[in-house]
Structure formats: C-alpha cells, structure tokens
Measured scan of single mutants.
Amino acid sequence: DHWEIRVGDITIHLKDVDEEIIRWVEEALRNGDDLEEIKRWVEEVLR
C-alpha cells in the first residue's frame, strides 16, 4: 500500500502503513502539530 497525506502545501508519502497511523497523522496535521515531530513519530512506529 502507498499513502499520500495532503494538508495544505504539505504532502507526506507513506508506504505499508496501518490506517490507524494515517488517521493519527491526519489528525495531528489538522491540529497544527509540528511536522518534524510527526515524521519522527511515524518513523518510530514503522521501525
């Protein structure tokens, strides 16, 4: 699977990601969370 999350001008590409993570990231972006923080979290989860 390949996911693209778009929020404003930001697009995040994710592969082999659980839908729950996608929802979490979308929510975090909508809440204005720091992008670097989100990326770190996702990388942590995917490890």
Rank of each mutant, 00 (worst) to 15 (best):
E44R: 15
E27F: 15
V17L: 09
W41Y: 13
E44M: 15
E44T: 06
R6K: 08
E26V: 15
D1S: 14
K15Y: 12
W3R: 03
V42E: 00
A28R: 15
R23S: 04
A28S: 07
E44V: 06
R6H: 06
I12E: 01
K15L: 06
L14V: 10
E19A: 11
A28E: 01
V45A: 14
E4T: 10
D34N: 13
V17T: 06
G32C: 09
R47V: 09
D18K: 10
E19M: 14
I10S: 05
H13Q: 09
R30L: 07
W3Y: 07
E44S: 07
G32N: 06
D33Y: 13
E43S: 10
G32H: 10
K39H: 07
D1Y: 10
I5N: 01
L14F: 11
W3S: 03
E26L: 15
K39Y: 13
L35H: 05
I21H: 03
R30F: 08
E26Q: 15
E36C: 03
T11E: 06
G32S: 10
V42M: 07
V45M: 14
L35W: 08
R6L: 03
V45T: 07
R30N: 05
L46C: 02
D33S: 11
D16K: 08
K15M: 10
D16F: 14
W41R: 11
T11G: 03
E19R: 10
G8D: 04
V45E: 09
E27P: 00
E37Q: 12
E27C: 13
L14G: 05
L14E: 01
E36Y: 09
K15Q: 07
L35S: 06
E20L: 12
W41G: 01
E27L: 15
E37D: 12
G8V: 05
V7G: 04
W41D: 00
E27D: 10
I5A: 01
V42G: 00
V25R: 00
R6W: 04
D34Q: 11
E20K: 11
E44P: 00
E37F: 13
W3H: 03
L35I: 12
E43H: 13
D16H: 13
R30T: 05
G32P: 10
E43I: 15
E4A: 10
E26P: 00
E43D: 08
T11Y: 13
N31G: 05
E37L: 11
E26S: 15
R47C: 10
V25A: 04
W24L: 06
R47L: 07
L35C: 00
D9L: 10
E26D: 04
E19D: 11
D9V: 11
I10T: 08
D18R: 11
I21D: 01
L29M: 08
W41P: 00
H2W: 14
V25M: 05
R6V: 06
R23Q: 05
W41F: 08
R6N: 04
I12W: 14
R6S: 03
V25N: 00
R30W: 07
V25T: 01
H2C: 11
D1R: 09
W24E: 02
K15P: 04
E27G: 07
D34M: 14
G8Y: 06
I22E: 01
E19N: 11
R23E: 02
E37A: 14
R30C: 02
E26T: 15
E27N: 14
D18S: 12
E4L: 14
H2M: 13
L35A: 06
L46T: 03
E44G: 04
D16S: 12
E36P: 02
E26R: 15
R23A: 08
E27V: 12
D16V: 12
D16C: 04
H2E: 05
K39G: 03
D9F: 12
A28D: 00
L35E: 05
R23H: 05
H2Q: 09
R23C: 01
L35G: 04
I5K: 01
I12R: 01
K39P: 01
G8L: 12
I38R: 00
G32I: 11
V17Y: 09
I5T: 01
E43R: 13
